[in-house]
Amino acid sequence: MIRFDRVSKRYPPGLDALSDLSFEVAEREMAIVSGHSGAGKSTLLKLIAAVEKPTGGAVLVGGQNVGGLARSALPYLRRRIGMVFQDQKLLFDRSVFENVLLPLSIAGFPPRDAAQRVRAALDKVGLATREKALPIMLSGGEQQRLAIARAVVGRPNLLLADEPTAHLDRDTAADVARIFHQFHDVGVTILIATYAGELFPGARRLRLDHGKLMA
């Protein structure tokens, strides 16, 4: 599903975020990327979603070299990937329902189908009764679950998550981790950048140190 082939990423004025990185994540696999702050975890996820381009090597998603995609092709790649961002990126002037609806509106889903899918996704993360609330009215854990619902509502076959349990208490973090396991159980490929590797037992571990993959 994901293949990094000698990937490097250098930011001006010469800071190496990733160096000569090679690994694969198979279809339906769940993997976590751990490492200290600044190790390159977020950069790695950004390369997969083509938010950044590698300065060397190739990043392949589903056999497609995403670094070489034309700008006009990027939206269609990103629609196939569900993303949970470190800062969640929720729209605070829109309701819970509207936040989850956004990816489907972007993809041009018919309104009735979209509404059904949104309700199913909210149900899955335990927010079915909060669809009219604004995100500001939700707790930290609920906001994180809302971010997950938005990531999975388009039923992507690849789910990326950047520190999805950061700033959550232990129980809430465990709840969130359980949701990821549920999606993995139904065949979604998952790659999570996290400090809290212990929350994802059974997942393959990739450890980054100063942009390099450790054994």
Binding site: P75, Y76, M83, K89
Partner: peptide, 16 residues
Amino acid sequence: RAEIEVSQLLGATDGF
């Protein structure tokens, strides 16, 4: 700005 960025990350085209 935030909404534009999120939409781009979720796969919105320039037209959208």
